[in-house]
Design a protein around this nucleic acid. Structure first.
Lengths: 147, 147
DNA sequence: TTTTATACTTACCTAAAAGAGAGCGCTATG
DNA sequence: CATAGCGCTCTCTTTTAGGTAAGTATAAAA
């Protein structure tokens, strides 16, 4: 698969700064329930396959089932179906079925999906940027704990 | 737990733009193995507990085992130990043991950990910002598929 | 003397997630 | 007539996540 990196747009940066400021001002008033929901959402949305599919679709939309499957390569059909359905439910993509034979289904990223993909972007960048550092940290850790 | 949001720093934005440009220029030359490693790293690092602990530690460092445990509230000792050890191995935090009784161990975020936490930040922001949208998307999906 | 505190580690168990593989419906193509 | 193609779904098995509970060391407090 082709992984592409996109920097955050200026609007996104401004937005996140605004949210940060709001957050700072009313620190004690942060609703517990909102935090729980955010955590739950993070748990669901920050998963490997979701991130990868989002990457793919933000690069090229629409894509068909087998196109995504081939692009990823290592995902089982079951997991792909499952993840796509979940993402559709969460409003990250839309699913369009053409009533033809053989079946044709198109997956198209939504605006919501695009913004999430943009948010993930910095994590991709981080991972690409810090591969070697993580690897050497692991090596060092394994050596010092092993002896 | 207190979740705080921090916007990306100017350096981070500049950096990610630089990486993006580099990426664009040599698009076909992208190493397959690097992609695989990035994916693996994402899979390991983009997990719920890692994100939460990183958030905590980026807010206040150092923290002791029980402090983290209490701050999260819903994590078992086993998972906490496991996640902390993994994060230490990946170089995201350091572990300092004081040879006293009762035991005292301090966890301190590293520079690498800080940059990852900054990268995650936009995902937290996205989640907080789009809670309602995701919820209504789910509602809509459930209603239209149920009938 | 018993309890408490701390930061684990180990063993055991269950439930959920993931993977492998077959089947399916229908048509066009060889 | 057999086969291939698409986008699944279903079943079965394996793997992983994660919880519970117990144990450990030692000193100080009750």
């Amino acid at each position: 698969m082709a992984v592409r990196f996109k920097p955050p747009t200026q609007e996104q940066i401004v937005k996140s700064k605004a949210i940060y400021d709001r957050q700072q001002r009313s620190d004690e008033v942060v609703d517990e329930r909102v935090e729980k929901l955010v955590e739950e959402l993070i748990g669901r949305v920050a998963d490997k396959w979701t991130m990868i599919i989002l990457e793919l679709l933000s690069d090229k939309t629409p894509l068909r089932f087998t196109q995504i499957s081939k692009a990823i390569g290592t995902i089982s059909q079951k997991m792909l179906t499952q993840t796509l359905r979940q993402m559709e439910r969460d409003g990250l993509l839309t699913r369009k079925v053409y009533p033809v034979v053989p079946p044709k289904v198109e997956y198209r990223i939504t605006d919501l999906g695009l913004t999430l993909s943009a948010a993930f972007c910095s994590v991709w960048v981080w991972a690409a940027d810090n591969l070697k550092e993580v690897e050497s940290a692991r090596l060092k850790f394994d050596q010092t704990t092993e002896g």
